[in-house]
């Protein structure tokens, strides 16, 4: 087995410097469309741009087009359909976490006790697999969330935070509720990706609820389809008060942020 020890040493450290340093490697994040014209002289032009967005991330308000990152699914149809078409360019951003409540309330939840150690339980509530794959990356050398005190735990009874991905299918409603109720207080919920925020491309339908917030209260959300590992890491840090959330605003789900629990 010595070869494996040697192999590990030979490889050296690949882990990102984030959060101490910004990560600049290409391809760590899909990024949001940037460089789109936002103000138009003709409201119809604005409407044309907004209409090409399949997820209502672009909304026309008068002669302006507003971008709502919570709803963006990185299809880049907006960039490719404007004249002249723009090619995708990475803007080096991944700090996307949104807090649905004011900053002060977010910090209150966990106080200071969880700053250095937080246990997470992942619930797949109908995710496509890409979100889950990005969570797995967090556990692997490039991101290695252990170094920051974040650990995956196999049982909700040991978990402080529930990471929920997917639009919450009807068949996963009960397992999700049971997992949430099994957690000790204080507990928090992270809605991971467009599906968990508002249902994503699946929306709310006969088979899925269209977002986690229609079932249990959400404390922080990460936009993206899927959110890259660094965006998830940023949200975790923001939750325990070690980073600032990108914004504080209510959830863009069709039902609003109401909880039934």
């Amino acid at each position: 087995m010595w070869e494996w020890v040697w192999e590990g040493i030979r490889q050296g450290i690949v882990t990102t410097g984030y959060p101490a340093r910004a990560e600049t490697a290409a391809g760590v994040s899909p990024g949001f469309p940037s460089g789109l014209p936002r103000t138009f002289t003709d409201p119809e032009e604005a409407e044309t741009l907004a209409a090409c967005c399949p997820s209502e991330a672009l909304v026309r308000e008068g002669r302006q087009v507003i971008f709502r990152d919570q709803r963006c699914i990185h299809c880049y149809r907006c960039l490719r359909r404007i004249a002249p078409p723009q090619e995708w360019r990475w803007q080096g951003n991944y700090e996307w976490a949104v807090s649905p409540r004011p900053r002060a309330e977010l910090a209150k939840k966990f106080d200071k006790s969880f700053r250095r150690s937080l246990h997470l339980r992942v619930i797949d509530a109908g995710a496509c697999g890409a979100c889950l794959s990005e969570i797995e990356q967090l556990n692997k050398p490039y991101y290695n969330m252990h170094r920051l005190g974040f650990f995956l735990t196999p049982t909700p009874r040991d978990a402080d935070l529930l990471l929920v991905a997917g639009p919450v299918t009807e068949h996963m409603r009960l397992p999700l509720l049971k997992a949430y109720e099994a957690m000790p207080a204080p507990k928090a919920v992270l809605a991971l990706g467009a599906c968990a925020i508002y249902g994503g491309v699946f929306g709310s339908s006969f088979a899925s609820l269209g977002g986690v917030s229609s079932l249990i209260p959400v404390d922080i959300l990460v936009p993206g389809c899927p959110p890259p590992p660094l965006a998830i890491l940023h949200a975790l840090l923001a939750l325990v008060g070690r980073a600032e959330p990108h914004r504080c605003e209510s959830i863009a789900s069709p039902q609003g942020g109401e909880s039934h629990v």
Partner: peptide, 23 residues
């Protein structure tokens, strides 16, 4: 293997805009 997987994801992301080749 995890390192190689992330390198492949980054390669996709940097060239084609999406780590999982959406769109």
């Amino acid at each position: 293997a995890g390192i190689l997987e992330e390198e492949a994801l980054r390669l996709c992301g940097s060239l084609l805009g999406h780590r999982y080749l959406f769109g």
